[in-house]
Design a protein around this nucleic acid. Structure first.
Lengths: 337, 337
DNA sequence: ACAGTGACTGTGACCGGTCACAGTGTTGCT
DNA sequence: AGCAACACTGTGACCGGTCACAGTCACTGT
């Protein structure tokens, strides 16, 4: 009886025995099945079905030297992870892209220095085959460490200061910002303010560059405030802008969250959006469509970003040196601008 | 030269050689160090430092039969993952709790039927030691499958229909709902409506039960609408309530997101919160404090929930049959009610 | 008739740990 | 003195795969 209940999981040897072939043949069938006779293949496939065999991940890892998993590494300070719906989108996309390749997604959070150290040794130990690095600030020593340790890494957004060395997937920040700016001007706005992201992040820097380029002679540095992508920072930035000038037409925020904060601040000041001031966001995060009023924003192709990151990383793991990928964004016009 | 560059990672044998002891002793030092002489211990620790040794996860897994990782299994349809900041909180908490134990968190998403099947075989194959099951609806076959397969599982929130069989970590739903209701009544509100969660989720059912209990004779089933926790559903529910009656004092929503939706609907109808109608939420998710107006809500102790889930699951994995854990919530009074 | 080729198969070593077990040496007790 | 108990250490087998290599066999060309 306990013979039956305590039966351990079938191994490749059990399958081999059941199919009347050797372990090697079973292994070959499992891994693509080249140089296997049709008879043997069907016998093995049948045996696998009968025994309910599933490969042992650990054993395979040990033999091949690959873990079959990638790390999703978050380096942002924690409050952003909480607020920003963006991460969830990327995370889900990456998890699905990996699941399709029967690999797994290991979540690593490197906020505190202690966590960062833990992550470095963990990754260095080869527990994962590569790292999907999310939104790192400039001169992040972690990027340096990973590269030095030879850990295959792909960044989301061009990591400032490491432009040349790391494969990246990013959107056309400058082009997107120009497009949004162009749109705002096409609506007749002239005094346009920008609530930029942190200047040590690619989104913070390049969206501002695009804005400045497109504004040309009309660019007024006095109408630029910097936030940290969070809603509060958007509100604070908007309040400062209002204190300084009163002739603002429109506001371009570098994230939807900041746009929402700005709108809240405007509302408090008795101004109406978009009637008195137009507000545009960036990301087309979940919040944009349900916000009141719905936000005009630049859509980032989150699913494609995570997909491309995964493919790129797998390429790197296989020894490739792939080109950086730049994806297009699309302008989504709703009610706020 | 390539001798130096191509040097492979040090193994336990390298450490043993460097320390002048056997593999067994090194292994003992690594695993707690019982029955090891102080001399040997320091020699080994020193050798580990010198060689830069880190244990090979796969090899250990293979030998011990444990993977050293837990699955964070999301069974909600996707839109909830995107909108609900709650998941991010739980996820982060769980990842940290595991990192402290040098285990890892594998993210699994089981939305579509295909994904669910993939998850079942993946988990069944023993790639993870246990499952942290997040927010399952009633009669979710996945719960059944996991239990049948003997996979250690801990649920977040009492899984309806499996109350007796699964270890769970949950908050006192009924008590919390009663407390909030009591608070609303203490503020002088009498005609209180509820926007409940889906009746096939514990939060949907028990928060309504608590509300009903506390309202007693004043309970009016006509003032109850059901949403799906999302912001839109809150707005829809609120609109329906307004169509039906005009004497509502206050609204108790079973999630902050629905509260936000309700407030948006009220605003559209020209009603002011809290002056005309008070609105209370549930969760104290990130949105609650920054919302305009800031939401009065019940705080769920997210960090403790994830912590307790992890400890409970580890207990189950070690063969224990731990008691379900119920955690207290706290009333957070802000401006919306 | 025989070497050569290509398709297929089986075998043993190995990946890097853990664990049970069999020592070894020291101490304490009778 | 003899023996047990205790603290510590080393060894070989094993976990479940993969891979290189050595066969085996049928078929082809000369």
């Amino acid at each position: 009886m306990d013979e039956t209940t305590a039966r351990r999981k079938p191994t490749i040897r059990d399958v081999a025995a059941a199919a009347g072939v050797s372990r090697g043949t079973v292994s070959r069938v499992i891994n693509g099945g080249h140089w296997v006779s049709p008879d043997a293949r069907t016998a093995v496939e049948d045996a696998i079905r009968r025994t309910g065999y599933t490969a042992n991940h650990a054993a395979r890892s040990l033999a091949t030297g690959r873990s079959g998993s990638l790390a999703f590494l978050l380096t942002e300070p924690q409050h952003l992870l909480f607020q920003d719906p963006t991460f969830a989108l990327l995370l889900r996309g990456a998890a699905e892209a990996l699941a399709q390749r029967s690999m797994t997604l290991v979540l690593l959070v490197a906020g505190t220095p202690a966590e960062r150290a833990g992550v470095a040794t963990f990754v260095g130990a080869g527990h994962v085959d590569g790292v999907l690095l999310i939104s790192s600030h400039e001169a992040d020593p972690l990027v340096e460490q990973l590269l030095e340790a030879g850990v295959p890494t792909v960044c989301c957004g061009i990591p400032l200061g490491h432009e040349a060395n790391v494969p990246t997937v990013s959107v056309d920040e400058i082009g997107s910002a120009r497009e949004m700016t162009r749109y705002l001007r096409s609506q007749g706005h002239r005094r346009i303010a920008m609530i930029a992201g942190p200047h040590d992040t690619p989104g913070g820097r390049f969206r501002l560059v695009g804005f400045e380029e497109e504004m040309g002679a009309d660019f007024d540095p006095g109408l630029v405030q910097e936030g940290d992508y969070s809603q509060e920072s958007g509100a604070v930035a908007m309040t400062r802008l209002l204190e300084r000038t009163s002739d603002i037409d429109a506001v371009f925020a570098a994230s939807d969250l900041m746009a929402a904060g700005a709108i809240a601040a405007l509302r408090k000041a008795g101004l109406r959006v978009p009637d008195d001031i137009a507000v545009a966001g960036f990301d087309d995060s979940g919040l944009a469509a349900t916000h009141e009023p719905p936000l005009t924003t630049m859509r980032q192709p989150w699913d494609r970003i995570s997909d491309e990151m995964v493919s790129l990383l797998l390429e790197v793991i296989d020894g490739g040196r792939p080109q950086p990928i730049t994806l297009p964004t699309t302008l989504v016009v709703r009610d706020s601008a």
